[in-house]
């Protein structure tokens, strides 16, 4: 039996291998995605992000435990950074989720950022789609909320939970980092620690300043993942957010937006890869770099010229 057939029969080994093929952009991966797309579109996508040490993995573990107990099938994607120097990565999020590794309702996949700008968002989206097509009811995506890439991933989700801890310090800083703007739900984990109340108050006052595009009331949920406290509240908030979105826009509009988003990401990824390969092989590029180095031109004028030249190459 081939991999795709096994996949369609619900074989986890095949699911895992297909994710790898997609992640590695192996020849033929587009065909796989094209074939699986027909089965996808049902899963609810939930992003969890926040600073290192906020307890995201523990929260994901608890949510997974709760959802599995109610019979839901859950895919989990845990993203950790790739070392920019060696290209390697240490993926350690499973440590916190090991009690889920034998749960037949749960599938956990660790992903490294692999240093690509934009590429990760695409790979995560594709993996989410593959999991969706496999039949998971929900996909939980955990990222370290630090860079633009992680923010992009979060944007591709139906609901985004931003996780803080009392030690995270002041909320205004987080606002600056762009974390606050992407949240649909705020989660204060380790809420039994000193400083929790202060941070909640601070968050509330900062939230008053947040620009709103709809009437969603941003909830602040307090949890203690280690002690399994507040997880129900968090899940309720996620459900509320889903219901709100469903009542706020028509299913058709949401579907349209989702497709538009996906399409944009895919196109962007393709153009980006194409661009890179064309640029890398182009003699003109080398020459332009040399010219800038020699001082005979500057990057701005050179870029104009390159884009003009490349537009033909890109469409060919």
């Amino acid at each position: 039996m081939g991999l795709l057939e096994r996949f369609e029969n619900g074989d986890q080994v095949a699911l895992a291998r297909i994710i790898s093929r997609v992640e590695n952009r192996r020849t033929g991966y587009q065909d796989i995605l094209a074939r699986l797309y027909a089965h996808a579109g049902r899963a609810q996508r939930i992003g969890l992000t926040g600073p290192p040490g906020a307890g995201k993995s523990s929260l994901v573990f608890r949510l997974g435990e709760l959802l599995s107990a109610s019979g839901k099938k859950v895919g989990i994607i845990a993203v950790d950074p790739t070392s920019p120097f060696t290209g390697g990565a240490l993926l350690g999020d499973r440590i916190r989720m090991q009690d889920l590794s034998l749960d037949p309702n749960i599938f956990i996949r660790s992903m490294a950022t692999r240093g690509s700008t934009g590429g990760l968002a695409e790979a995560t989206r594709d993996t989410t789609m593959v999991m969706d097509a496999f039949g998971f009811d929900l996909v939980l995506i955990e990222t370290v909320g630090v860079g633009q890439v992680e923010l992009d991933i979060a944007r591709a989700c139906d609901s985004v939970v931003v996780v803080f801890v009392p030690e995270s310090g002041d909320a205004v800083q987080a606002m600056k980092a762009g974390l606050m703007e992407i949240a649909d739900i705020y989660c204060l984990n380790k809420a039994d620690r000193d400083g929790a109340e202060r941070l909640v108050l601070e968050l509330q006052s900062v939230l008053g300043l947040r620009q709103r595009t709809n009437n969603w009331e941003y909830p602040i949920i307090q949890t203690q993942a280690i002690n399994n406290i507040g997880i129900d509240d968090l899940w309720q908030a996620i459900k509320n957010h889903r219901e709100f979105c469903q009542s706020d826009t028509s299913p058709e509009d949401r579907q349209k937006e989702r497709i538009a988003n996906d399409l944009l990401t895919i196109v962007r990824g393709k153009v980006d890869r194409r661009l890179r390969s064309v640029l890398r092989d182009s003699e003109t590029f080398e020459k332009v770099v040399a010219d800038i180095l020699a001082g005979s031109t500057n990057p701005y004028s050179a870029a104009e010229r390159l884009v003009a030249e490349l537009s033909t190459a890109l469409t060919s």
Binding site: T86, G87, G88, L90, L91, Q98, S101, L102
Partner: peptide, 19 residues
């Protein structure tokens, strides 16, 4: 292994064979 460019998934202590 990380420094050799590999992706290492570390599952932690006291793992049972089936896990």
């Amino acid at each position: 292994l990380r420094d050799a460019g590999m992706e290492v998934i570390y599952t932690g202590l006291r793992q049972t064979p089936d896990k």
